[in-house]
Simulated assay, not measured.
Amino acid sequence: MTVRDRIDRLCEEYAPHEHRPLGGYAVAMGGFGVLAASLAAAAKVTGRPVPERPAASDVVLISIATHKLSRLVAKDAVTSPLRAPFTRYAEPGGSAEVNEEVRDQGSAVRHAIGELVSCPFCLAMWAATGLTGGLVLAPRLTRLAAVALTATAVSDFLQMAYSIAKEAAEGGRSPRALGA
């Protein structure tokens, strides 16, 4: 039995009634490993100090920026051209967001990337790793970018709170119908 036969058998045994792109997931995990190793190597080569304990303010800043960056990449209508090779538009998904389906045709790698780029939860680890690496390699620039992402996330929540408050104040009439 060849290695390829064993892999195919493993995939069939893992999910006999559903297509799960295990090979594509392995490639994505490898890509993440390359990203993390590259950041670690860059920190070592440049001699940048890695903090023993990140400041609480950086953890909060990076957390909120990670939330916004992962939603921006995975759900924003404007970033849909980045996802288009791997996903297909399904329907509107809320305020300036879209819901997309992963393309099933093509390779397991294409499918796995489609799942990754259309899932803000999946992308969060990548975004957090990049932003955290940025804090070590280019802290001022990373904090500046994180501030912009965090401000946008806070603004999003304020816009939604405003719409909810306005609707409640106007007796439950839809904010869309009122031109909000």
Rank of each mutant, 00 (worst) to 15 (best):
M1L: 11
T2K: 09
T2R: 12
T2I: 00
V3E: 13
R4N: 04
R4W: 06
D5M: 04
R6C: 10
R6F: 05
I7P: 01
E12F: 09
Y14P: 00
A15F: 08
H19W: 06
R20N: 04
R20Y: 12
P21V: 10
G23F: 00
G24L: 12
F32C: 02
L35N: 02
A36P: 00
S38F: 04
A40Q: 03
K44T: 01
T46C: 07
T46W: 04
G47K: 09
P51L: 13
E52G: 09
P54A: 08
S57H: 10
D58K: 00
V60I: 13
T66W: 02
H67M: 06
S70C: 06
S70R: 02
V73N: 00
V73M: 15
V78P: 00
V78H: 06
S80D: 12
P81L: 12
R83A: 06
A84M: 10
A84C: 07
A84W: 15
P85W: 07
T87A: 10
T87Y: 13
E91C: 04
P92M: 10
P92N: 08
S95Q: 08
A96W: 06
R103S: 03
Q105I: 00
G106E: 12
R110T: 07
E115G: 12
L116N: 07
S118A: 13
C119W: 13
P120Q: 10
F121T: 01
C122W: 11
A124V: 02
M125K: 01
W126R: 00
A128Y: 08
A128G: 11
A128H: 02
T129Q: 02
G130H: 01
L135C: 08
L135G: 04
L135P: 04
P139I: 02
R143Y: 05
A148M: 12
T150R: 00
T150I: 05
A153T: 00
F157Y: 13
L158Y: 06
Y162C: 10
E167K: 06
E167H: 01
E167Y: 00
E167A: 15
A168L: 11
A169W: 07
E170Q: 10
G171K: 08
G179T: 04
